[in-house]
Simulated scan of single mutants.
Amino acid sequence: MSAPQEYWLSGPIPDVPALLQPAAHALLQSVREVKVYLADFPEEKLWKKPFGRASVGFHLRHITGVLDRMLTYADQKSLTEAQFAFLKNEGDGENAPSSKILIADFEAKVNQALDYFKKTPESILTEERFVGRKRLPSTVIGLLFHAAEHSQRHVGQLLVTVSALKG
């Protein structure tokens, strides 16, 4: 059985502006890869940190949290107390949900991002936005692209961690 075609080679995603297609493809590819890599991953290893590196559970929570935060900044809003609490607990495996729930949470956040992309006119993509309490400068497209490439980066790290833990 051959691997499915990568999203970036599958044509445009309906109603997503052309300039946001690469970010949408990367996010959808991240969801697909997470599901494949974790299909038979042992639940008891979800929060293990091989070689002192981040756990699989952390990567799953973190990519969801970063995507949520980048959408908030793109929408010109400040983070809420709930978002700060989520950020603080991204690496905490105590009373954490299962990998299936973490994957579902990430997929739901990606779907929310795709809906956001569909409602974002290309004319605002270069508008300035600010990140964090220090109000570091970015743009709408910068935030949305960062969310996508950051997800891909952590999915790569997750793959290595999964491979190390499966032995």
Rank of each mutant, 00 (worst) to 15 (best):
Met1Gly: 13
Ser2Pro: 09
Ala3Gln: 13
Ala3Val: 12
Gln5Met: 11
Glu6Lys: 06
Tyr7Cys: 08
Tyr7Asp: 01
Ser10Ile: 08
Gly11Leu: 09
Gly11Trp: 02
Gly11Gln: 03
Val16Asp: 00
Pro17Lys: 04
Ala18Val: 05
Leu20Lys: 07
Gln21Arg: 04
His25Phe: 14
His25Ser: 10
Ala26Gln: 03
Ala26Cys: 14
Ser30Gln: 11
Ser30Leu: 09
Ser30Asn: 14
Val31Ile: 13
Val31Trp: 00
Glu33Ala: 11
Lys35Ala: 04
Leu38Ala: 02
Leu38Pro: 01
Asp40Asn: 10
Phe41Ala: 09
Phe41Thr: 13
Pro42Thr: 07
Lys45Cys: 04
Lys45Asp: 08
Leu46Glu: 02
Trp47Gln: 04
Trp47Ile: 10
Lys48Trp: 05
Lys49Leu: 05
Phe51Gln: 04
Gly52Val: 00
Ala54Glu: 02
Ser55Gly: 06
Val56Asp: 01
Phe58Tyr: 06
His62Val: 13
Ile63Arg: 04
Thr64Asp: 08
Thr64Ser: 09
Gly65Met: 12
Val66Gln: 11
Leu67Asp: 00
Arg69Gln: 09
Met70Lys: 08
Leu71Val: 09
Tyr73Pro: 01
Tyr73Ala: 05
Ala74Cys: 14
Asp75Ser: 07
Ser78Trp: 10
Leu79Tyr: 05
Leu79Thr: 07
Thr80Val: 10
Thr80Leu: 07
Ala82His: 09
Ala82Trp: 05
Gln83Cys: 11
Phe84Pro: 04
Ala85Glu: 15
Leu87Ile: 06
Asn89Arg: 15
Gly91Thr: 10
Glu94Cys: 08
Ala96Ser: 10
Ser98Met: 13
Ile103Asn: 02
Asp105Leu: 09
Glu107Ile: 11
Ala108Arg: 13
Ala108Lys: 13
Ala108Gln: 10
Val110Trp: 00
Asn111Lys: 04
Gln112Pro: 02
Leu114Gln: 00
Tyr116Ser: 02
Tyr116Asp: 04
Thr120Arg: 02
Pro121Ser: 03
Pro121Arg: 01
Ser123Asn: 06
Ile124Glu: 05
Leu125Ile: 01
Thr126Val: 10
Glu128Asn: 15
Arg129Asn: 07
Gly132Leu: 11
Gly132Asn: 15
Lys134Gln: 15
Lys134Arg: 15
Pro137His: 08
Pro137Ala: 04
Thr139Ile: 04
Gly142Met: 12
Leu143Lys: 06
Phe145Asn: 11
Phe145Cys: 11
His146Ala: 07
Ala148His: 00
Gln152Pro: 02
Val155Ala: 01
Val155Trp: 00
Val160Ala: 08
Thr161Ile: 09
Val162Thr: 15
Val162Phe: 08
Ser163Cys: 15
Ser163Phe: 13
Ser163Leu: 12
Ala164Thr: 13
Lys166Glu: 12
Gly167Phe: 13
